[in-house]
């Protein structure tokens, strides 16, 4: 199932980095999509910068407006809410629903052709159709237990 964190303000790169690093500690989050206004290069807008998440460098190309998450279990929402309360003092909403596309579509087929079969299910729906998946998606490996 998906949830959407909707902060009442647009988040800076610093807050996004702190929030995501704390959310990373929660078990049961499968995928995260950061949605927001796209930003020009960092010489023009300093919020366009590289953030570090579990040692993995991620180019934050947007000013965070929404954080969409694919989670395994409804029970972790309370943990997520607690973390958000620490980082988002100006208020936020958490909505339940379907926010990330789960199925491969005809458009995917046109875009990737035969290669679509090799694309794992988890990579579907992470970006908009016009973007290169490699430019937008980063895989963060889970630590082995």
């Amino acid at each position: 199932m998906d949830i959407e964190i909707f902060p009442h303000r647009l988040l800076s790169a610093d807050t996004t980095e702190r929030l995501l690093n704390d959310l990373e500690g929660i078990e049961g989050i499968k995928r995260i999509v950061i949605q927001g206004q796209r930003l020009p290069p960092k010489e023009i807008n300093e919020n366009h910068r590289t953030i570090i998440l579990k040692g993995e460098e991620i180019d934050l190309q947007v000013q965070t407006g929404r954080i969409l998450m694919d989670i395994e279990d409804e029970e972790i929402i309370e943990d997520i809410r607690t973390i958000c309360e620490d980082h988002l003092p100006f208020g936020f909403n958490i909505h339940l629903g379907t926010f990330i596309r789960k199925q491969k579509t005809v458009t995917d087929n046109i875009k990737y052709g035969e290669a679509l079969k090799q694309i794992p299910e988890e990579m579907v729906g992470l970006t908009d159709q016009n973007a290169q998946l490699s430019e937008r998606a980063t895989i963060i490996k889970r630590e082995k237990q």
């Binding site: 303000r9 800076s12 206004q37 023009i44 000013q63 100006f90």
Partner: peptide, 18 residues
């Protein structure tokens, strides 16, 4: 662009060019 967007954390209106 920015008049209808949420404000930035510091209360400023979103401005792509800052």
């Amino acid at each position: 662009h920015g008049h209808a967007l949420r404000l930035d954390e510091d209360g400023m209106m979103f401005d792509m060019l800052r």
